[in-house]
């Protein structure tokens, strides 16, 4: 790919950087406890938590860094951080 004039780029390329590989702990969502409030989605610094067709929340593990903010903030305690298995 030829260099862009002036070190510029169009959107989308940051997705090439799959930050999910950084993860040590994985958020596991328990839909039984989920009230669908969406707070986890709001507070995720990656913006990688999406709503499913059933309006539950689902993290995109390709990008989730496993910071645990969602689990910490979830009012229903529906998210548990579990150690990644190598």
């Amino acid at each position: 790919m030829a260099l862009a004039v002036g070190c510029r780029a169009r959107p989308g390329k940051s997705r090439d950087n799959k930050t999910g590989s950084w993860r040590v702990f994985r958020p596991v969502f328990d839909n039984e406890k989920c009230s669908k409030c969406g707070l986890c989605q709001t507070v995720c610094p990656e913006g990688c938590i999406h709503e499913t067709d059933e309006e539950f929340m689902e993290p995109d593990y390709t990008y989730c860094k496993g910071c645990g903010l969602c689990a910490e903030e979830c009012p229903g305690g529906a998210i548990e951080m579990k150690q990644e298995e190598k």
Binding site: L3, R8, A9, R10, P11
Partner: peptide, 25 residues
């Protein structure tokens, strides 16, 4: 202009270059 800041075609201007690119820039 060759390119411009434009909401209709959002380009990032003035990104930084790692050693993989700086030399070539």
């Amino acid at each position: 202009p060759y390119e411009k800041l434009d909401a209709a075609d959002p380009i990032s201007f003035g990104m930084y270059a790692t050693p993989d690119y700086y030399h070539e820039f």
